[in-house]
Design a protein around this nucleic acid. Sequence first.
DNA 1: ACGAGGATGCTCT
DNA 2: GAGCATCCTCGTG
Length: 208
Amino acid sequence: MTSFSADYFARPTVAVAQDLLGTVLVHTEAGRERQVGRIVETEAYTQDDPAFHGWGLYDEATGTLQQEGRGIELFGAPGTAYVYLIYGMHWLLNVVTEPEGTGGAVLIRAVEPLEGDGVMHQRRSAARRRQDLTNGPGKLTEAFGIDDAFHGTMLTEPPLFFAALEEPRSFDMATSSRIGISKGVERPWRFFIDGHPYVSPATPSDQA
DNA sequence: ACGAGGATGCTCT
DNA sequence: GAGCATCCTCGTG
């Protein structure tokens, strides 16, 4: 299992978000079962996007980037983890995209567990069905034990990394508006494996 | 099956 | 004080 290098992430964000479908997220921990999840749902966020957590840091008219502010890490090295707390209780995992100096990130929204069911069930005691282990962005971070300790780490090497699984792709990709946002709703930047049972059950933001 | 409401903490106004 | 890239529980059909 060979991890993706920084070059893989140093590309247009939408392309990375689509390409990550069908690849795997891997977490290795000493003395514990390895956790592997096949990515079935992602979202893209770019620097000119009002829903982006670094929106306004880059001024397109002058080409200048602020030195600090919320989400400044999203302009850093491609392949870096951007982990943040949402609604005061759930950690969400993003991977930084685009070349350094350009902002962008892909949110990992859902995976299908391939290895590590035991650990995931331990961490996700609320899950009644197997798909509830990882069919949402906050659920998968809990199942994989991902929190702010991973913020800023490189997702190009263990203990947490991405890798290829299947070649060629053996699924149909579907698209929708992103979920849970109020700005940038018109951008069709949620990507998922059509009909897959581990896709999150939430409703896209452009629907009633 | 589905919808309403609450939990809970950090950032920006 | 509001808003937030969410999840869970408890109602009603």
